[in-house]
Computed example of a mutant assay.
Amino acid sequence: MNIEEFKREVIEYSKTIGIDKIGFTSANMFEELKQRLITQKELGYQSGFEESDIEKRVAPIKLLPKASSIISIALAYPSKMKNAPKSTKEERRGIFCRASWGQDYHDVLRDRLNKLEMFLKEKVPDIQVKSMVDTGELSDRAVAERAGIGWSGKNCSVITHEFGSYVYLGEMITNFPFQPDTPMEDQCGSCTKCLDVCPTGALVQGGQLDSSKCIAFLTQTKGFLPEEYRTKIGNRIYGCDTCQTVCPVNKGKDFHLHPEMEPDPEIAKPKLKPILTISNRDFKEKFGHISGSWRGKKPLQRNAILALAHFKDTTAIDDLIKVMHEDSRPVIRGTAAWAIGKIGEVSAAHELQKAYEKEEDSQVKEEITKGLSFLLTKK
Rank of each mutant, 00 (worst) to 15 (best):
K130D: 01
M172H: 03
Q301N: 01
E162I: 05
I332F: 00
E42A: 14
R8G: 01
H106I: 06
I127V: 15
N175R: 06
R112D: 07
M29A: 01
I237A: 07
P330M: 08
T135E: 11
H289E: 14
N83M: 13
C243T: 04
L306H: 06
S165C: 09
C156H: 07
K297W: 07
M324V: 00
S72T: 03
G206M: 11
E366F: 09
E351F: 14
I11A: 11
Q363S: 12
I317K: 12
R230G: 01
D140C: 05
H289Y: 14
E171D: 09
R110L: 11
N175L: 07
P265M: 05
R329S: 11
I17P: 09
L64C: 02
M184K: 15
V129S: 13
D318C: 02
E285P: 02
C198P: 03
M81T: 00
S291A: 15
D254N: 15
P265Q: 05
V158L: 15
Q301M: 14
K298M: 13
K379W: 10
S14H: 11
V158M: 05
S328T: 10
E91L: 13
L300Y: 03
S347K: 15
H289S: 13
V124L: 15
Q40D: 13
L218H: 04
K253E: 08
A74S: 10
E12N: 14
W338M: 00
A67P: 08
E51G: 06
P226D: 12
L113P: 12
N175A: 04
T242E: 13
D140N: 11
F311K: 06
F283G: 02
E359L: 10
H258K: 12
A304S: 14
A337E: 04
H106V: 08
D186H: 07
K365D: 01
H161R: 15
R146L: 15
A216Q: 10
G102R: 00
L308G: 04
S100P: 00
P259Y: 08
K253V: 08
K273V: 12
F374D: 01
I237S: 09
I3A: 05
V143C: 06
Q353Y: 14
